[in-house]
Amino acid sequence: MVREKYHAELDELKQNISDMSAVSQEMFQKSIKALANFDKALAQEIIEMDHTVNDFEEKIENRITRLLALQQPIASDLRLITASYRISIDLERMGDLAVDVAKRIKKMDAEKILSISECKPIISTCEEMIEQSIKAYAELDTELAKDITTKDDIVDRNVYAGWQDLVQMMIDNSTIIENAVEMMFVLRYLERIADHTCNICESVIYIATSERVDLN
């Protein structure tokens, strides 16, 4: 009863998720680079990458539908399949949020770029969280997955502090209000990206143990 074709399909599903993660990660990296350099051309490039991540989501959904219909998976296989579907949705949303960041960059006024100290820890922590969630999935490492919570707290704290700073800046100088509002949105999107990495880690724990945990 060894099911070689079926297990090859499961391996391909894992590979699809891993490839999709790489695209979402690249979109994120480009979005923070575009933000740092105020690079509107790069921002446009990110917007155009959206369809790639959408295509991946569709491909994964089709593969999962086929697996469920034809293979009737059970136990850890079923957990892998259902959780991978959720992960593909998280990755697609992360891609959308990178696109949202890019759109905000395009709206900003180049003469009034704002610099806040919280940006650096938010970005570096988000980067680590994305890396960590991808690794946790690839290796089904529950400890690595659980560890994401502390990082999510760092992002949340800094985003809140960043908002406070931006509000103060707007009070001090009304001419930067538009850029400050765009920045508030950007911080919000980064915070949401971090939340999606937590969701991915929750799915990893579910695959490995069947436990449903809340990490954010």
Binding site: M1, V2, R3, H7, P73, I74, A75, S76, D77
Partner: peptide, 10 residues
Amino acid sequence: TEDYITGRFG
């Protein structure tokens, strides 16, 4: 059990 029900041997 896991290996049997998921078709990894048998």
